[in-house]
């Protein structure tokens, strides 16, 4: 479904008072980040790329988000969020094991890598994963459902909605410093906010 803010682009405010230098600096670095991993290897990156494509689809008619690159960076840095369920390994180890296990499930079920099965097959497999119904040997001690809700979903979703294309699509104001907003009441907007296009 195309979004309701086709004429709106957060990045059009790049040189406006809505963006400060720090925000420009970090967004610039983020948007040019490439999906290169020191720790995952080709097969796992391919599996992860497919996961990103199915779980966090690209916005229609907008510059694609580099979600894969951001997730890889997080995994490579082994950067945790300050909590993980007892039994779930640290970020990198958990992802390595899960990517192998997801690929093994695809091979077991469809005789092909997760990156190569059909969209429908991939989605069925992911649904089973989200419901805790995958128990292949490759999971080892990793609980698939815990991985899904405490690692996979937060990591993918946080990376995806860190990209300006996704902000534009939802009509989010985006960066707002030093200039914030004047009109806060229901039904009002400032000229530098997105305009909802009635279908």
């Amino acid at each position: 479904m195309a979004d309701r803010y086709p004429d709106y682009d957060v990045l059009a405010k790049w040189d406006s008072p809505s963006f400060n230098d720090k925000t420009r600096e970090i967004l610039h670095a983020r948007m040019k980040l490439l999906p290169r991993s020191k720790h995952l290897g080709e097969a796992r990156v391919a599996t992860l790329a497919r996961l990103v494509q199915r779980v966090t689809p690209q916005p229609e008619g907008r510059a694609p988000a580099n979600t894969l690159a951001l997730v890889i960076a997080k995994i490579d840095a082994d950067a945790g969020d300050g909590f993980r369920p007892a039994g779930l390994p640290r970020v990198r180890a958990a992802w390595q094991c899960a990517l192998d296990a997801i690929n093994a499930e695809a091979r077991e079920g469809h005789g092909a890598a997760f990156a190569d099965i059909s969209d429908a097959q991939a989605d069925v497999l992911l649904k089973a994963l989200s419901e805790g119904q995958l128990h292949g040997a490759a999971w080892g001690n990793l609980d698939a459902r815990t991985f899904w809700s405490w690692r996979l979903i937060p990591d993918l979703v946080s990376a995806h909605w860190a990209h300006p294309s996704l902000w534009s699509a939802m009509g989010f104001g985006g960066p707002a410093s030093p200039r914030g907003y004047l009109r806060q009441q229901a039904g009002y907007r400032d000229p530098w906010e997105a305009e909802w296009e009635h279908a």
Binding site: N20, D21, K22, L27, L70, G80, R84, A86, P175, S177
Partner: peptide
């Protein structure tokens, strides 16, 4: 000068050292 208008970057404010729950 240090804060961006950005959820991901501002992770630097949080206690992200390992903790088990």
């Amino acid at each position: 000068e240090d804060f961006a208008s950005d959820e991901m970057h501002q992770r630097k404010l949080y206690w992200t050292d390992d903790r088990l729950v």
